[in-house]
Nucleic acid binder design. Structure first.
Lengths: 233, 233
DNA sequence: ACAAGTATGTTTGATTTCCAACAAAGGGGT
DNA sequence: ACCCCTTTGTTGGAAATCAAACATACTTGT
């Protein structure tokens, strides 16, 4: 772990990510730097498969992915892994637990590849120096947007996994991704095993269902690239 | 729909609920009244099964249940109903959509019984009169807690419905309710059909599974009262 | 180019869920 | 007490999923 202020290199490298992040929207570079100091920002470099949070812990800090990606997961002792979300650069994880004093993590967070994350203390934002920094109120307002967006994201995940059949889950997820990205041809951030874990189905059954959908001409796919064709008339 | 300020009756009747609500925590009665006016508060009386929000709409207002209860649901055209949550007096619904400009409701909200709800305009809180009312920043801070709590609630719902079998879903939900309420004997807010819709399983299969669990001595239940016994050794 | 490891697709039988129909139990109103 | 309506439990056949095994790409490192 590195102190953010002492490593100018990181700063120049990633400031453009922070500027594009909803949480820092409407702030100048200098204001962002001030805030990073207030929130005790620290950069962590994580190797692939390293745990950033473990279910059962509690935390005052939230994470912001700078490079690479992390998976928010739940896993039981027998290898079943449930993927709640993949978090890409510019997006947060753990913010809801950090913002809820006394809460216990119901999820784990692991690096999906070699990853750099920025850890930010939310309590410093919520409970101290409310008057001193005029930016704090602005940031808390931004935090509302971040949290509301997370709820909406969760709503749509629940939409997918509430479907009863593997086929419906696939089509629910794929069509929503297609709409979100605004095109019928798009990439998804998951490989087959991860997609199965995201949709809570068996990989082999899902693979079989994808083959069926291909044969029926409803979609085409190679690796993580998908093309939806709609239902032929 | 009634104007809140003109109906003192409602006010006295429900102010104690508002005072106990996390969103208004740390505020005096007079401050709450001021806020209600700022947020254009209006009381709505809804008959059982009436829709408060419909999927596809968008909204600037969030709802607070005063009496009765509402269900947050998703339904397809062929009667499949997925219950995301039951909202009891003192709790919010729709706040994430109201706090996300341009968002479209992915859920519907229906009155589960004859219900009174308070509708509050979130935009008035987030975008106007930030300087005038010192309470606003306090409220936005409280809104962060409300939203973070909603994410945690969603996390735990995802935990339950991600389980692969009906039995696991039941036990996941029931044990978490038991822990949440701090006792092995507890009531749940759902009848059998609603519980099945909440866990995304078939009612009849769930009923059969409950019978098995009873026979095995793992739990006991009559109507919506449950007693967990743990797995016998 | 090769080998080893990983990811994806396919198949199979056992298990589970779904679905519809029906039976039994409870509630409310007259 | 009676009937009607809702809720809950039970059953059985059809369909889907799970889980394990295997085959076939595709990667990666040497």
């Amino acid at each position: 772990m590195f102190d953010f202020q002492q490593r100018g290199g990181f700063l120049e490298k990633y400031l453009f990510i922070l500027k594009g992040c909803p949480f820092f929207s409407g702030m100048t570079e200098q204001e962002i730097l001030t805030i990073l100091h207030c929130m005790d920002a620290q950069v962590k470099k994580m190797d692939r498969n390293a745990y950033i949070f473990r279910a059962g812990e509690s935390t005052e800090t939230m994470g912001l992915v700078l490079s690479g990606s992390v998976l928010v997961i739940q896993e039981d002792l027998w290898g079943h892994r449930n993927i709640l979300a993949k978090v890409l650069p510019g997006d947060f994880f753990g913010e809801s637990y950090a913002a809820t004093p006394g809460s216990v993590l119901n999820v784990s967070v692991v690096a999906n590849e070699d990853t750099e994350v920025l850890m930010l203390n939310v309590n410093h934002l919520l409970t101290t120096c409310q008057n001193a920094c005029t930016h704090h109120n602005h940031l808390i307002r931004n935090l509302v947007s971040v949290l509301a967006g997370k709820v909406l994201q969760w709503d749509s995940k629940i939409t997918h996994i509430s479907k009863r059949s593997t086929r419906e889950k696939l089509l629910s997820y794929l069509s929503s991704e297609s709409i979100r990205q605004g095109k019928l041809a798009f990439d998804i951030p998951y490989d087959r095993q991860q997609l199965a874990d995201y949709l809570s189905v068996e990989r082999s059954a899902m693979s079989a269902e994808l083959s069926k959908l291909k044969k029926e001409g409803i979609l085409d796919t190679q690796k993580n690239h998908f093309v939806l064709r709609g239902i032929p008339e």
